[in-house]
Design a protein around this nucleic acid. Structure first.
Lengths: 228, 228
DNA sequence: GGAATGGTTCGATTAAGCTCGAACTATGAA
DNA sequence: TTCATAGTTCGAGCTTAATCGAACCATTCC
């Protein structure tokens, strides 16, 4: 009867509104303190503390103590991926189609998905990596082709440092708004970080929206191809 | 505060053990009756009925009346994808690594993921489709190349009939055991169905295990490349 | 028509767990 | 030391919802 992993346990963890809000907030990739997450979830600090303890014990988030603050972040790409998949179901089967406000439109255009770029621009970048043959699918896993390595280095990313980490370099993540893949993994993270360094874009403080500057978007189009 | 879809709602739906068991059972792709699902979940028919009504209302499953039976199946690939993603988290972060019994090993080798082939053999097939350039990534979406179409037809699949349906032909789905993609969508379904027709494999009645015959596995290796 | 089977609705019970006030620990600043 | 801030633990209160017995529809078979 009990085949496969225990899915109910973690689904129940995500299933509480307060915890779901916390996790959604952590999709921004920023590490947040317990107090910030309490704010985000709309509960008191005591309540947030118990929730966070549960999420930690369940392996969904990872705490990091720093001074008298305690920062929390998602436990890994896997968790982010599951959250995106749930958003996909909620967006599709969501019986009440929530009116799409301007913020929603911005979210669909470019947002942060646990540290990497998602939304329309995220999938466009991923497509460009495929079209230019920068990414190769070797044994099912994504890997950078020599051309791809050249591009990434030219883009200003320290590839050696990325490889030194244990985290997988290239992963793909299915987008809830676009229903297509975008680039996750260490490289996805680095690409977004580099775009911020180049002042192409900056993250919106509160939300997960990524706002491109006018020049940034032009440079993006020049690099990865214009919008269809 | 409420950006993105309402994730807690459906996570809570999946978060109940009884319902999670039902959904896991439905990952076999077979439509099951209310009584069967009650058995699977280990609850009485009355309880199952309320659970099923909830899942239906939440858009996770789709009921179909047939005579005095009521068959349930998953609402779509999206739901299956979310369930697999949750299994990925549960398997990875699952604090107690459940001992891997023989059934688990069989599950990892070949199982059904809501009507298409998953596990080691599923990812191997997906890899082969990529290596032989049968699948192309066009605008992020997967599509069959001319060579791919030729193969699929030669394999004995009525491609025109598949395209007639509204469902997307090629999708990819991330595997919880292999952490790699396998082929989902209408084509994925058709491939598994054809393999069963060819007597390469048959589904285990109760579980989600797919058992290949000796000749079937040899034919599979000849078609898609042997195991590494 | 009657019997049997599959499924649902209703009500009461029970258990789980979310929530916050209050008191407590730990770190940092004055 | 003293105070302030961040976070945790404890103990109720309270809501939610899972569960099943019993009675009730619907369909099929005899």
């Amino acid at each position: 009867m009990k085949e496969g992993p225990d899915i109910a346990r973690i689904a129940a963890l995500i299933g509480d509104p307060a915890r779901a809000n916390m996790l959604t907030a952590l999709m921004s990739g920023k590490a947040l303190t317990a107090a910030e997450l309490a704010m985000e979830a709309g509960v008191t600090p005591q309540t947030a503390s118990t929730h966070l303890a549960r999420l930690d014990e369940g392996g969904l988030i990872r705490p990091r103590k720093q001074g008298r603050h305690k920062y929390f972040s998602l436990a890994g790409d896997e968790v982010a991926h599951a959250l995106e998949a749930l958003m996909g179901v909620a967006a599709g089967a969501g019986h009440l189609r929530t009116r799409t406000g301007p913020r929603d439109r911005a979210l669909r255009k470019a947002r942060v998905c646990y540290n990497h770029l998602a939304g329309d621009m995220g999938t466009r970048m991923f497509d460009a990596f495929g079209a230019k043959a920068w990414l190769a699918r070797r044994a099912g896993a994504l890997s950078l082709s020599p051309d791809g390595e050249a591009f990434v280095r030219a883009f200003g990313i320290d590839l050696a440092a990325l490889r030194a980490r244990r985290a997988p370099l290239c992963l793909e993540c299915l987008d809830w708004s676009e229903r297509r893949s975008h680039l996750a993994g260490a490289l996805g993270r680095a690409m977004l970080g580099r775009m911020e360094d180049l002042k192409w874009a900056r993250r919106d403080g509160e939300t997960r929206v990524v706002r491109f500057t006018r020049q940034g978007e032009r440079a993006f189009d020049a690099t990865f191809g214009a919008a269809p």
